[in-house]
Amino acid sequence: MEQTCQPVQKKWFDRVPPVLWVLSIIIIWFAVASRGSFFTIPNFLNIAVQGSVLLILSLGATCVILTEGIDLSLGSILTLGGVIAVLAMYRGVPAIPAMLAGVASGFLCGAITGLLIARGRLPPFIATLGMSGLAAGAAVVMTNASSIYADPPAFVFFGSGRLFGVVPMPIVVAALTFGVVYVILYHTPFGHYIFSLGGNEAGAALSGVNTVLWKFMTYLMAGGLGGVAGVLMASRLHAAEPTIGLRWEFDAIAATIIGGTSFEKGRGGIRGTVLGVLLLAVMRNGLNVIGIRPVYQAVILGAVLIIAIIFDVLMKKRQEGL
């Protein structure tokens, strides 16, 4: 039975996600090049904290890309979420409702793009590009283009505290979010419909799937995740900056693609995205630790992204025996 489906006997190294190879090589190289200051537990925690905001944002990007869509508004939604939360606290709203308001603004943005795309049949590229301008602009207007600060204890704890005095809160938040999205994606009908929207939208509709509803829900969820990421980001900085999320959507898309999710046919998943986010976070941290100047960092980062994706494509071809 099985052998008819899988004629090629896979070797153990074929089961490892390709991006893990790149990641391992990079970690080893940094460990050597930094003479020990990279390969320490505090630094690893640091990397995880730095990656946690991007992970939350990338989870949304991955779900959207699995439906053969794209969301270019995630970075602006992140900015807006932080701005709304901080602004509310600044005006005297208690920390928890203010933070929830920030998250809600993300859901609202997601609902608008979702409606435009699923109901209005606008191309995702255009709808989310428009939303990107809208949300970014709104953030600048609300803050008068300057940073605003807030530091209620609950807010500060959310971004900089440690759970039981050990695990940094951003890691806890990211892990919880990952768990929720994981359950949604792999254990609820909604998650299966996300795959079917990308894999065969017409076929799913013929099987009685309400494709309009679930496409809307996907963008709604991505927007909500953007809101969470924005609030987390602001609580790490104890501040909202009107341009903090600039270009973050591209990092989220890059992390998704590096993680092996394809723009076509609903192929991939969020496990790979975690590795993609780690790769980006490790690169940024490592280049800093070994003291590369920021201008060169951008060049190296770009090159590594391209190499990682080429490697992923080659390995996939090999694994499929093509």
Partner: peptide, 16 residues
């Protein structure tokens, strides 16, 4: 075919 390529056989049979 009206199948979703990256779901399992069972997930396709019960799609919807």
């Amino acid at each position: 075919f009206n199948l979703v390529p990256y779901l399992s056989v069972a997930q396709n049979i019960y799609l919807g």
